[in-house]
Simulated scan of single mutants.
Amino acid sequence: MKKLLSALALLSLLGGCATHQSPTGRGQTLLFSPAEMNQLGAASFEEMKKQQKISKDSKVNAYVGCVANRVTAALPDKSQRWEVVVFDSPQVNAFALPGGHIGVYTGLLKVAENQDQLAVVLGHEVAHVLAQHSNEQVSRAQMTGTGLQLANVALGAGGIANRDLYMAALGLGALVGYILPFGREQESEADVMGLELMARAGFDPRAGTVLWQNMAKAGGAQGPELLSTHPSHNTRIRDLARLEQQVMPLYEAARASGVKTCQMTK
């Protein structure tokens, strides 16, 4: 009977799903509402803040906050407020979650060597949120049988016991040991959208290829944690080189209008 009820619940949920178009025109199946995804994002972020050591370095926080605030200020939705937290960890990683949450690990700052390279990463991560990639991930997990727990969590009925599952579905799998990575199409989409976003914010898009070359060199053969869910290939770097030239006018226009420089003070 429990199996039957679960199957009926899943069929009911799938019957109500809608097919959407991503910002680049790619088809998406999204089972969850923005409000439900924001709830998932907020719960996951609160859990991350409990699990991870938060940096108290005021200079690091000011620098990361400066870059993140400029990137998010370039988003179409000006009403969304973004919470930015720097985690004190050697991990080379960063993430963004639905509902306006950004996490950056101090280890990333050793690979992203300046404000422009950091903006490449943050633009990419925020683009995942803007394109509703986490909704796709949770929806995919739901449809492939990862568990009805995801729906329960999204509706507020699952409780914190399911945190590993829903954090993984939100793209945080490498951090919790449950890998559910974004797909190649989603990664390419985030590259395109993220580079345009950081250029609109007045960061130099030519930092993109340099940043990913740095990423490829970091951490030995497997690369840093960021690459465990963000695969980097020569094709990706070539594509970024092409994209950089396309968005240069946006960068030049932003610089001409005047933008704040983000620097790590000594």
Rank of each mutant, 00 (worst) to 15 (best):
P231C: 12
S232K: 11
E244K: 03
D239I: 07
S228L: 08
P231H: 12
R236I: 11
L226S: 07
L226T: 05
L240H: 03
S232W: 06
Q246H: 01
Q246M: 00
Y251A: 03
S232M: 15
R242Y: 03
L250D: 08
P231E: 09
T229D: 07
E252L: 14
D239E: 12
Y251G: 06
S257M: 02
L227V: 15
A254Y: 08
L227I: 14
L243K: 07
P249G: 12
A241M: 03
N234W: 00
R242M: 07
E252R: 15
R238E: 15
P249D: 08
H230D: 10
A254Q: 13
V247S: 08
L226P: 05
S257N: 02
L226W: 01
Q246K: 07
E252M: 11
E244V: 10
I237N: 09
E252P: 04
A254R: 13
G223V: 00
L243Q: 09
R238F: 09
R242T: 13
T229A: 09
A254G: 14
S228K: 12
G223I: 00
T229Y: 02
I237V: 13
S257Y: 00
L226C: 04
L250I: 04
S257C: 00
T229P: 01
A241G: 05
M248H: 01
I237R: 14
A253L: 10
S228D: 02
G223E: 05
E225S: 13
V247A: 10
L240Y: 03
Y251L: 02
P224F: 04
R238K: 15
P224Q: 06
I237D: 04
T229C: 06
A253C: 10
E244I: 08
E225A: 14
T235A: 13
V247Y: 04
T235V: 14
L227Y: 01
D239M: 08
L243C: 02
A241P: 01
M248I: 03
R255Y: 11
H230Q: 12
L226A: 07
P231S: 13
M248R: 01
G223L: 00
L227R: 11
D239C: 07
H233P: 05
M248Y: 01
A256S: 11
E244F: 03
A253F: 04
